[in-house]
Write a protein that binds this DNA or RNA. Structure first.
Length: 885
RNA sequence: UGGGCUAUAGCUCAGUGGGAGAGCGCUGCCUUGACAUGGCAGAGGUCGACAGUUCAACCCUGUCUAGCCCAACCA
């Protein structure tokens, strides 16, 4: 029974149907396969507030392709999904929500109630992204899903924190940090964007105590002078030698500060004289440390000036700056103002100007951990693909700064450090204590800060697999899946995430967290611009999947993923691959009626004909290519290989050559051809399945035998020794070349595609002669010939003909009176010029004794053979040309 | 300013010490009984510039230029 298939592939229905079938059927769950080996990818947990964007789509496509590939190869496969609590982002969302709906701030709620509210928000709105990942065809085991704020994750976080604390690797310190006055929290260096801002150098005169002299100081931040605690010059600067050790007087506050010398100061920059504000400048902080200067903080948490700001108290820095400059001018201590553009740090999330601020923060000493993490990559224990990204990784870790892990937020893992109000004891604890560990007093409190989100992310590869609870670890098959197989992510979080997982895994478990790191490209728009809300150039994966089909979208993303750093996504490309998916569909639609009763491939391959052996050999080649390219994360090569095979080899030649057989009445050849077509089709959908899971599963349903399971768990095709029909591949290449040449000649003389012509082939190659005789009908069919004559090269050529010369034969189409001789001459001359240029190049080599002496013998031989072949072609061309004259 | 990466067809990118490739786009012809989301044929590149190593350089080395990324920062 032939079932009517629609003319175009309709993705939406198939996608929903198959996703449900897979998920409900438990096909995403790890199963023991023939490899008896685990394969695990931990999905980078997207933010709980997030919506799927193009970058996620790429993440999922590459990871899911790997997972599906390994699953089919028989590994026990786990794709582990999750979500990140995204401290700042989530807190912002909830704060915004309660402000809009209830006109309340988080302080109105209080900490406990606010956190409860945030959990409510999470349950209600969070994690939409998981359903969006399903649309893309992701095949993780959803039962493994974890949230970075889950109790299990918290258990891991607390255990690691307490261990590091007790080892002395976590410490609290006054330190100058990036303070975001809008978020009212410390943020990491990496969350600060430096933007160019138009400012000015203000040249200010500082009086010197007991003297009429002044020092001219240049600064871009005059308002911070109120917190100055020194003036600094270079120790070798002759101009200022006499002042070193004396005392300067800070304007307004009349603070007396020392004039010190430090070689941080450049003699030729600015005025060579620097005001030192250890409380509000990173470098000044370092100078202050070296010289034991006091630290003065002149800012409130919201960024406004505090009482140190005197009459400017309460103002924000820009306003204070303006007034201070005006006043300096009034009192004659402003020398000049020079316009100047400089870089100012802005909060990545809030956009606020970041204030360097000294405060008590928690730090992780990463010195030893980063050394170990560097070593692991140096000795290839963990390998990056592409390798060059290891440089980026090293550059971060070879000069590590201690990691500031405290954040002044409410939403996150609260730091498990406790204080006794009575005896001032401080200690870290995995469990919430009720009494002081030292004096047993009940008046204790927990540190109010929470941990940087990346702290919990750093533990993610093992906290998701049950660590530190032995029972959970067993249940989640920790031993099978850890270390994980590969981490797939973008280069932008090599430091944020990859480096920290490496550090923590080695520190906590003394083993690598993953064997490979595949760094994929960053998705940009077709002009290479970042996708952003403000540009409005983002590509919505859901809309894209709906418009082109998830398979076409996945294929596009995979085809653009290799070792490149950017992927410029052009909807035109997606449309192109939609055509490819449709092509596959139609190839199937055509062959389908013949496949339904088709048998299996014969055991004895000698029963197969030349074209059948050829397509099996090509299929074998493409299977080898798919395996090796997927193993190396060269998705671009995989896509190219299968695309080329399906279009060029399978559709254009094999199906075309099969038509006369399938429509013919020789039942034996028909049956053989149908069996090969069915086998080839099954292999094609299997090869493609990791990249385009939906349409392949849909086609598989029609192709599989009754006792076969779904495609998602079918064996992945691998190269087979018995299918290497090299000779058939070689002769088929000639067949293709001859047909294409004939078509080219036909076209050049304007023969209509429909019209049949006669062909005369001149050659002396015995093998070719018998091959042409054997495949006369196929040749006639593909080149639209009504007759074929093969003659020896010694025979006379017909007069008025369209001609093509190959290295091993000449093709003549006699066309009495029909052809434009000049066109032909022009064509042949062009070919001749090209051929002769090639010959000249090769001859130059052959006649060069140094080439003969130095080049490898096989290269010399190859060049000689080529030259001889081309010479033959040249002779043919010259003869043909002479014929026309 | 330092470090890294990149420079190949109109666009996006592969690639190799010995004959310049793919996809898309473009041009021409074709509504041939799976598919016009198609078929066939074709045009298009001094492989960023200069020098060096080599019998031989798009590939290796150096210098320069341009772009991107990271870091630092001009007080």
């Amino acid at each position: 029974m032939t079932q009517e298939l629609p003319k175009t592939y309709e993705p939406t229905i198939a996608e929903k149907k198959w996703y449900d079938t897979w998920e409900k059927g438990g096909y995403f769950k790890p199963r023991k396969g023939k490899k008896n080996e685990g394969y695990c990818i931990i999905m980078p947990p997207p933010n709980v507030t997030g919506r799927l964007h193009a970058g996620h789509a790429l993440d999922i496509t590459t990871q899911d392709a790997l997972i599906r590939y390994k699953r089919m190869k028989g590994y026990e496969t786990l794709f582990l999904p999750g979500m990140d609590h995204a401290g700042i982002a989530t807190q912002n969302v909830v704060e915004k929500m309660i402000m809009e709906t209830e006109k309340k701030t988080r302080h109105d709620y209080g900490r406990e109630a606010f956190i409860k509210k945030t959990w409510q928000w999470k349950e209600e709105y969070g994690g939409i992204i998981a359903s969006q990942q399903r649309v893309m065809g992701a095949s993780p085991d959803w039962d493994y899903s974890m949230f970075t704020m889950d109790p299990e994750a918290n258990e891991a976080v607390r255990k690691v924190f307490v261990n590091l604390y007790n080892e002395g690797l976590i410490y609290q310190s006054d330190y100058i940090i990036n303070w975001d006055p809008v978020l009212q929290s410390a943020i990491s260096d990496a969350e600060v964007d430096h933007k160019e801002v138009n400012g000015a150098f203000y040249h200010i005169l500082y009086k010197i105590k007991d003297s009429d002299e002044t020092l001219e100081i240049a600064t871009t931040r005059p308002e911070t002078l109120l917190a100055d605690t020194a003036v600094c010059v270079h120790p070798d600067d002759e101009r200022f030698q006499k002042y070193i050790g004396k005392t300067a007087i800070v304007p307004f506050c009349n603070r007396e500060v020392p004039i010190i010398a430090d070689d941080y100061v450049s003699i030729d920059k600015g005025t060579g004289c620097l005001k030192v504000t250890p409380g509000h400048d990173f470098n000044d902080f370092e100078i202050g440390r070296r010289h034991n200067l006091p630290i003065i903080n002149m800012l409130n948490k919201d960024g406004s000036l505090n009482e140190i700001g005197l009459e400017f108290k309460g103002m924000m820095p820009p306003k204070a700056r303006k007034l201070i400059v005006e006043k300096l001018e009034e009192i004659g201590q402003l020398k000049e103002v020079k316009k100047h553009t400089h870089q100012v740090g802005h909060g990545e999330r809030s956009g606020a100007i970041i204030e360097p601020l000294v405060s008590k923060q928690w730090f992780v000493n990463v010195k030893e951990m980063s050394r170990v993490a560097v070593e692991a990559v140096e000795k290839d224990d963990t390998v990056f693909y592409p390798k060059q990204w290891e440089n980026t990784y090293f550059s971060w870790l070879r000069e590590p700064k201690d990691w500031c892990v405290s954040r002044q937020l409410w939403w996150g893992h609260q730091i498990p450090v406790f204080y006794c109000n009575k005896c001032n004891h401080q200690w870290a604890s995995e469990e919430d204590p009720t009494i002081c560990a030292k004096c047993s007093d009940k008046d204790i409190k927990q540190d109010p800060d929470v941990l940087d989100t990346w702290f919990s992310s750093a533990l993610w590869p093992f906290s998701t697999l049950g660590w530190p609870n032995p029972e959970r670890m067993k249940q989640k098959k920790f031993d099978t899946f850890f270390p994980t197989s590969v981490l797939v992510t973008g280069f932008d979080i090599i430091f944020f995430w990859v480096a920290r997982m490496m550090m923590m895994s080695h520190k906590v478990l003394d083993i690598r967290p993953f064997k490979h790191v595949y760094i994929h490209a960053i998705v940009r728009d077709k002009f290479g611009r970042k996708m952003s809300k403000s540009l409005g150039n983002g590509i919505d994966p859901l809309e894209t999947a709906a418009e082109y089909g998830a398979d076409a979208f996945r294929f596009t993303l995979a085809a653009g993923s290799g070792y490149n750093r950017t992927l410029n996504l052009d909807p035109e490309r997606i449309n192109g691959y939609k055509a490819f998916v449709n092509k596959l569909w139609n190839a199937f639609r055509f062959t389908y009626p013949f496949l339904q009763d088709a048998g299996e491939l014969p055991k004895d391959f000698s029963k197969l004909d030349h074209h059948e052996r050829w397509i099996l050999a090509e299929l074998n080649t493409v299977a080898a290519q798919m395996n090796s390219s997927l193993d190396e994360y060269r998705f671009d090569e995989s896509c190219q290989a299968i695309y080329h095979f399906v279009y060029e080899k399978f559709c254009s030649w094999f199906i075309e050559l099969s038509k006369p057989i399938l429509y013919g009445d020789n039942e034996d050849t028909k049956a053989s051809r149908a069996a090969v077509l069915r086998f080839a089709f099954k292999e094609i959908v299997a090869l493609l399945h990791p990249i385009t899971p939906f349409i392949t599963e849909e086609l598989w349903e029609h192709l599989k035998s009754k006792d076969e399971d779904l495609l998602i768990v079918k064996d992945y095709p691998e190269e087979k020794e018995e299918l290497r029909f090299t000779k058939d591949q070689e002769s088929m290449n000639k067949f293709v070349e001859i047909v294409s040449s004939i078509r080219g000649v036909r076209q050049s003389v304007g023969i209509k595609p429909k019209d049949e012509v006669a062909l005369e082939v001149y050659t002396d190659e015995a093998e070719l002669i018998s091959y042409l005789k054997e495949h006369e009908s196929g040749l006639k069919d593909m080149a639209r010939l009504n007759s074929l004559v093969v003659k020896s090269k010694s025979e006379a050529r017909p007069d008025k003909s369209a001609v093509a010369a190959l290295t091993y034969c000449e093709l003549f189409i006699p066309l009495e009176g029909l052809i434009d001789i000049n066109d032909q001459i022009q064509r042949l001359n062009k070919d001749l010029a090209k051929t002769q240029a090639e010959i000249a190049k090769l001859n130059k080599k052959i006649t060069n004794p140094q080439f003969i002496d130095n080049a490898k013998p096989e290269i010399v031989e190859k060049v000689k053979v080529e030259a001889a072949e081309l010479k033959e072609k040249e002779d043919s061309l010259l003869k043909s040309l002479a014929n026309f004259k």
